[in-house]
């Protein structure tokens, strides 16, 4: 029984691992490399790799496995890009190579923002998350919550204002 619960080859367990670690992994990749577009792809490929090797990965070490594989996949892509660039002899903007200081500042800002979102009032956060994460329009939110569109707009406005105050001056 306990063996079954720790077997990553079991689709239910695999999904559980995915739900537990995928966000952390994406975040790790982003703040390590600063390229959101590739992060999603690499996160997916990392889990595909985990599935391929599901029988040999220890359930208790799955987190470090994911982070190591993700890291390596990213480095491989960067290495490949570098070679391609050298052959094309192109000048490429280095925006994906964010400097470590910049990334650090960005990470700090991001953490501050997340804290601020968590500290919003229940009403404001609800509207904010439905709009931003669930991609609902104000009108849809209004219908869902039984409010007027105006009221939704008011809450959204308040949420943004609150966030701005919380993060202070940049």
């Amino acid at each position: 029984m306990s063996k079954d619960l720790n077997n990553i080859c079991n689709p239910t367990i695999f999904e559980k691992v995915f739900r537990t670690y995928s966000k952390d992994l994406k975040r790790f990749l982003y703040f390590r490399f600063g390229d959101m577009e590739s992060c999603e792809d690499i996160m997916q490929d990392t889990f595909v790799k985990l599935w391929d090797n599901c029988s040999s990965v220890n359930y208790n070490k799955v987190k470090s496995y994911l982070f190591t594989v993700g890291n390596n996949l990213f480095l491989n892509i960067k290495k490949h890009e570098k070679i391609v660039r050298e052959h094309q002899q192109l000048k490429v903007n280095d925006s994906t190579y964010e400097s470590p200081e910049f990334l650090l500042l960005e990470k700090e800002f991001q953490l501050k923002l997340e804290k601020a979102i968590a500290a919003l009032s229940e009403r404001q956060r609800e509207v904010f998350l439905l709009n931003k994460i669930e991609k609902k329009k104000y009108k849809e939110i209004a219908e869902m919550l039984g409010l007027s569109v105006k009221a939704v707009e008011k809450r959204m406005h308040g949420a943004l204002k609150e966030l701005r105050n919380k993060i202070g001056n940049i």
């Binding site: 995928s22 982003y30 923002l113 979102i117 701005r164 993060i167 940049i170």
Partner: peptide, 19 residues
């Protein structure tokens, strides 16, 4: 500040996107 906030929220959307 709002411009920064917009960037941050955009990133937040990506990081927290439904799985």
């Amino acid at each position: 500040a709002y411009m920064e906030l917009e960037k941050g929220i955009h990133l937040y959307e990506k990081l927290e996107a439904p799985l």
